[in-house]
Amino acid sequence: MYSIGETAKLVGLSTYTLRYYEKEKIITPHRNANGEREFDEQHIAWLRFVIRLKATQMPVAQIREYTELFLAGEHTAPQRVELLQNHQAFIQEQLQNLTSVESELQYKIENYEKLIATSVK
């Protein structure tokens, strides 16, 4: 079992964020006899998944919805798949946008490099 501080260091989040995720019912740590939060390996794995979802711009409300569906049981698998498929489509759209912007940036960089090369001579 890990304390909240140890967990924060392991997953790269602040203790404030862990408390926020608990408040939002995204994670439910165990409590020891003193009422202190304790996290196990399953919590760590779950938090790492949540971090990846956040990195792809999934809103906390959607992460909470996914969490609620997961905790409700296997019968919610179709809704979870739909939620993840919708987010995957969002990610694919973002990738297309980023690829387009990256191409434009590369074009600009090449033109500036040519301008710099010709003005240096």
Rank of each mutant, 00 (worst) to 15 (best):
Met1Leu: 12
Tyr2Asp: 03
Ser3Arg: 14
Ile4Ala: 04
Gly5Pro: 03
Gly5His: 09
Glu6Gln: 15
Glu6Ser: 15
Thr7Gly: 04
Ala8Gly: 11
Ala8Asn: 11
Lys9Ile: 10
Gly12Ala: 09
Gly12Gln: 07
Gly12Ile: 08
Leu13Ser: 08
Thr15Glu: 14
Thr15Phe: 06
Thr15Ala: 12
Tyr16Ile: 10
Thr17Met: 10
Thr17Ile: 07
Leu18Val: 06
Arg19Thr: 02
Arg19Gly: 01
Tyr21Arg: 02
Tyr21Ser: 00
Tyr21Glu: 03
Lys25Arg: 09
Thr28Phe: 08
Thr28Glu: 15
Pro29Asp: 05
His30Val: 01
His30Arg: 12
His30Ser: 11
Arg31Ile: 02
Arg31His: 05
Asn32Ser: 05
Ala33Leu: 13
Ala33Asn: 14
Asn34Ser: 13
Gly35Lys: 13
Gly35Asp: 10
Glu36Lys: 14
Glu36Pro: 00
Arg37Ala: 00
Arg37Tyr: 03
Glu38Lys: 12
Phe39Asp: 03
Phe39Glu: 01
Phe39Ala: 00
Asp40Lys: 05
Asp40Arg: 01
Glu41Leu: 06
Glu41Met: 07
Gln42Trp: 01
Ile44Trp: 06
Ile44Lys: 06
Ala45Pro: 04
Trp46Ser: 03
Trp46Cys: 00
Leu47Lys: 04
Leu47Val: 07
Ile51Arg: 14
Ile51Met: 13
Arg52Cys: 12
Lys54Ser: 09
Gln57Tyr: 13
Gln57Ile: 05
Val60Trp: 01
Val60Lys: 00
Gln62Trp: 01
Ile63Pro: 02
Arg64Leu: 01
Tyr66Ala: 04
Thr67Asn: 02
Glu68Ile: 10
Leu71Asn: 15
Leu71Glu: 09
Leu71Thr: 09
Glu74Thr: 09
His75Trp: 08
Thr76Ser: 15
Ala77Ser: 10
Ala77Val: 13
Pro78Arg: 07
Pro78Asn: 08
Gln79Ile: 06
Gln79Trp: 07
Gln79Asn: 10
Gln79Gly: 08
Arg80Met: 09
Val81Ala: 03
Glu82Cys: 11
Glu82Gly: 07
Leu83Tyr: 01
Leu83Val: 07
Leu84Pro: 00
Leu84Arg: 02
Gln85Asp: 14
Gln85Tyr: 02
Gln85Phe: 00
Gln85Cys: 02
Asn86Lys: 12
Asn86Gly: 06
Ala89Ser: 06
Ala89Arg: 08
Phe90Glu: 03
Gln92Cys: 07
Gln92Leu: 14
Glu93Cys: 01
Glu93Phe: 00
Glu93Ser: 04
Gln94His: 03
Gln96Ile: 08
Asn97Val: 10
Thr99Phe: 06
Ser100His: 15
Glu102Pro: 06
Glu102Met: 11
Glu102Asn: 11
Ser103Phe: 05
Ser103Tyr: 06
Glu104Arg: 12
Lys108Pro: 03
Lys108Arg: 13
Ile109Cys: 12
Ile109Thr: 12
Glu110Phe: 12
Tyr112Thr: 05
Tyr112Phe: 13
Glu113Ile: 10
Glu113Ser: 15
Glu113Leu: 11
Lys114Val: 06
Leu115Tyr: 11
Ile116His: 11
Ile116Phe: 13
Ile116Gln: 15
